Computed example of a mutant assay.
Amino acid sequence: MRKVYLIVAIWVTAQAVVAQPLKVSAFIDSFVVKNNFNGTVLIAKEGVVGYKKSFGLANFQLNVPNNPDTRYKVASITKAFTSVLILQLYEQGKIDLNKTISAYLPDYKGEGADKVSVVQLLNMTSGIHNMDTGATFESVLKNGIPQYQHPYTSDEMLTLFSSGKLETEPGKVWDYNNADYIILGKIIEHVTGKTFEENLTTNILQPLQMANSGIAHQQNIIDRMADTYFYRADIKALVNDLPVYIENWYAAGAMYSTVDDILKFSNALFGKKLLKQATLNLMFTSGLGEYGYGVWVYKDYDINHKMYTIIKRPGSIMGAQAMLFHVLENGSTIIILSNTGTTSLDDFAARIAEKVVD
């Protein structure tokens, strides 16, 4: 009799998984058309994929379609990986989150060397001059993006763009600053004696069998990588992304991945395979700007008149658009990777959540 109940339970679960795409498919198809979305959408519940579909083109010039195996630049989703690497070192007793930058980078020349803690880098309250200040749509079209259009090393990115003066008192003001995560990447390297890329591969990608993920480099041809295009509102057209050295984003945004690999990371993170629960509690503490350690943490987030905790990690570099959206209490995960800057993935993920979260 127990076997019969087990079979019924498995069948009911399977039916629920099958039913999910039927529920959301029409909405997603409509949203894609209205917003000219190009990319791949994956929806999972408790780690089980219930919906996965690709739309549009990975390369417009050659008419190459996106598919579920397409690799995308995932931009600032990289920061979630960087946070995990730092917190793994914290669990190993190799990093004290309350110590300052100079404890791990003794040659750091920035004003925050003895004032900014590792925690303040993680939660974006360092107060360090923002390395992207002044970058507007108009200025970028006229002058480019100097910090990303020259082949700088990570050491040069640290010295030239991440060692500025303190604009605010550390810990007091939230400011989204890529410099904070470039510093964290260099701390990881100094503590371990290995490159950031080696740490990422050894401690996350290989254990999770994320064979379709890594750090992108401008000179490398990456098989199945989608080209990226951003929307020019002034001419109302998609255009090629500006030429950049993607590796300059380093620990703040240089990764590429697939929806399946990002799900592997999500399942391991929320399944306590990468960090202990006590450490996850630190990472998911919603602070200034509703930001935790490398992720946004929204408490009392209203979905269909019920309150949930949302862990969200978006990414955006011109046409490279990415979203990891996880409902903590419900176990629903929405992953959206795109190669065109035509769609608000914040809005897209929120609307999907309304369809899949009971």
Rank of each mutant, 00 (worst) to 15 (best):
N240G: 08
H326N: 14
M283Q: 15
G287Y: 02
W249A: 13
R232K: 09
A320M: 08
V244S: 02
D234W: 00
I221Y: 08
M210H: 07
M283H: 10
H326K: 05
G292N: 12
T258D: 06
L263Q: 14
E290M: 14
Y256F: 15
Y245C: 08
T228D: 05
Y229S: 10
F265A: 06
H217D: 09
G292Y: 09
T228M: 07
F230M: 06
V259L: 06
L263Y: 03
Y256S: 01
V259Q: 03
H305K: 15
R224P: 00
K272P: 04
G253R: 06
G289W: 08
K272Q: 13
I262G: 00
Y245G: 02
G287N: 11
R232C: 11
I311C: 09
H326C: 11
M323K: 01
D302R: 09
K272W: 02
I303C: 11
I246N: 05
I311S: 12
I215H: 07
L328R: 12
F284G: 10
I222Y: 03
V327G: 12
M307P: 10
Q218N: 13
D241E: 10
Y229M: 06
M255H: 02
Y229G: 02
P314M: 00
K272D: 15
D300Y: 11
A268V: 01
Q209K: 15
M283P: 10
N281H: 13
M255I: 05
L263F: 02
V327N: 11
V327R: 13
A268S: 11
Y293H: 12
H217I: 08
V244M: 13
L275N: 01
M283Y: 08
Y250R: 10
L282N: 09
G292D: 12
E247V: 05
A237V: 06
G315C: 05
G253M: 05
F270Y: 15
Y308L: 10
S286T: 04
Y231F: 15
A233N: 12
Q277W: 04
A278N: 14
T285Q: 13
F265L: 02
M307K: 15
G271R: 06
L242W: 08
I310P: 03
A237Y: 01
T228Q: 03
F325I: 02
F265T: 03
T279P: 11
K312Y: 09
W249M: 12
N281Q: 15
T228V: 03
N212P: 03
L238H: 04
K299S: 12
A268T: 09
D234I: 01
K299D: 13
A216N: 09
K312F: 05
R313G: 03
A254I: 02
K276Y: 04
V297P: 08
D227V: 01
A278K: 15
G289T: 07
L328W: 12
I246H: 01
D260E: 13
G214W: 05
R224G: 01
G315R: 03
H305Q: 15
L242N: 12
L282Y: 10
I246W: 04
G289E: 09
Y301P: 05
K273N: 14
A254M: 07
Y245Q: 10
I235W: 05
M283F: 07
L324Y: 06
I310T: 03
N304H: 12
G294I: 00
Y229L: 02
Y231C: 00
V244Y: 05
T279C: 12
R224V: 09
I222D: 02
I262C: 06
S286G: 14
Y298Q: 11
R232M: 12
H305S: 15
T279M: 13
Y298V: 09
D223W: 01
K312H: 09
